[in-house]
Write a protein that binds this DNA or RNA. Structure first.
Lengths: 252, 252
DNA sequence: GTCAGTTTGTTCTGTCGTTCACAAACCTCC
DNA sequence: GGAGGTTTGTGAACGACAGAACAAACTGAC
């Protein structure tokens, strides 16, 4: 028998892992996880949580791949970058694998997050329950507009942007969310970086420049729509108009 | 002289393009635009708009690449899929290129969009000005909750989800936005598809399955944060802890 | 203990995407 | 009209990723 059985797993994500000899124990330090794989780990994590909620103890790569909406070969390869957490002939233990992925992503600790720009989107983000449930806690809301100060949003007071440095230093924040208008985004990003923030999630529809060592991820609503529009346009054309003749006499 | 000069372009995005012989006129029908390129076209479009607002008539690939935050070689290759819209030794005419990209994406027409699920996020989306300014118009807001019906959000009444078919058929809607809780998303997606929607932008944190011919793009806030957390965790480890020894005695 | 059936982990191969480097094309100046 | 400088468009090398296919490893039956 190995170090784990479905029966002795803690009920809710808290899995005790002891380094018993004979069980492959995670990834060797040399391997780097490809970026494409990193981007899918949260999807697997969610799929595993869903399976666990349904009472599933064990699943095959085929099952999990279906739940995550990917190819099973891809799933197995992705998981292999983390280590050998499955059992051939059996599959994966849901709770165990879930914990391993969570640990790999870094969700075994709590990440304090601040949100800058409490407009429509900032409100929605502050109220978004998916943050806290996944190990992120919004510790402060900042806005440059004095009219918004001290207003309570999702139980937190909106604070002036000048409090940034104190908050970041005091709470050990390393992740910031920008939900300001586009014109303010670069300035906010600069100040976040200056205070020690090293990861930024940018909702403002503009490119922001940051120094090396700072990660930026962009979420852009209208870009996603435009990509859809491109494909939609292609569908609508009945294959005749697309074959030449369209480029002439084009006017706005 | 070619068919265009910076001077005789219409002032604001409306560019008259006539098929004068001697000027390369767009892409041949055979070529397919790579998906990665399609995803960047909206970024170039935004950068061009920004340059135009600053009064710039002409820009080099280097300029535009800097504004869009990409490599200039990549930019040139991307644009080459659309056609030869630049002039060697000179660069690109901002207004002309902007129009060509907009046409390629399909933004010369207006795309009606419906939003399903008018919670916190739905509110923010309905009020998001970036939609209308880029050729998308929100024509209806739907919600299953009767308590929300007829409430005015961004000037539009929230309507019952059962009105879906009538609205889609009546307004010729082909793009739908899902901003419901995760549990409702698949059901909403099925109904959207049944009514003839062929492009879906999904904000619900779950995988949705659709038949072939329907495009889905996913925007997932917590996944983005988790990806940031992964890299953040890697930064924090001072390269010693990462080299083994961490896998034992890990508890939540 | 052996055999059949199942499922993982990994290797291999083709495709897609990025980057470099350079010829072709253009402008300006003389 | 020609020379020199500039910039695009693209061929080619390179790297990352996806998917198929298979050997290795496990379970359970007998």
């Amino acid at each position: 028998m190995t170090a784990r059985t479905p029966a002795d797993d803690a009920p809710d994500g808290v899995v005790h892992v002891d380094g018993v000899a004979g069980r492959p124990q995670g990834r060797e330090s040399g391997r780097e996880i490809p970026e494409a794989t990193v981007a899918r780990l949260p999807i697997y994590l969610r799929a595993l949580t869903s399976l666990a909620d349904q009472g599933t103890d064990t699943c095959s790569s085929e099952d999990l791949a279906a739940a995550a909406g990917v190819n099973s070969a891809k799933l197995r390869k992705d998981l292999s970058y983390l280590g050998s957490y499955g059992t051939r002939g059996v599959g994966y233990d849901v709770a165990y694998l879930r914990y391993q992925i969570a640990r790999e992503i870094g969700l075994t600790q709590d990440w304090p997050v601040i949100i800058v720009g409490i407009g429509n989107l900032g409100h929605a983000l502050a109220n978004f329950s998916g943050f806290r449930s996944r190990g992120f806690s919004v510790v402060a809301l900042l806005d440059a507009d004095p009219q918004r100060h001290d207003e309570l949003v999702a139980g937190l007071p909106v604070r002036p942007f000048d409090d940034l440095e104190r908050i970041v230093a005091g709470q050990g924040v390393s992740i910031g969310v920008i939900a300001t208008p586009a014109v303010a985004a670069q300035d906010v990003a600069d100040k976040l970086v200056a205070c020690g923030i090293t990861s930024i999630l940018n909702f403002a529809p503009t490119v922001i420049n940051v120094p090396d060592g700072v990660d930026v991820r962009k979420v852009d609503l209208s870009i996603e729509l435009q990509i859809l529009a491109y494909h939609e346009q292609r569908k609508a054309i009945p294959a005749t108009a697309a074959d030449g003749g369209l480029d002439e006499e084009v006017t706005a």
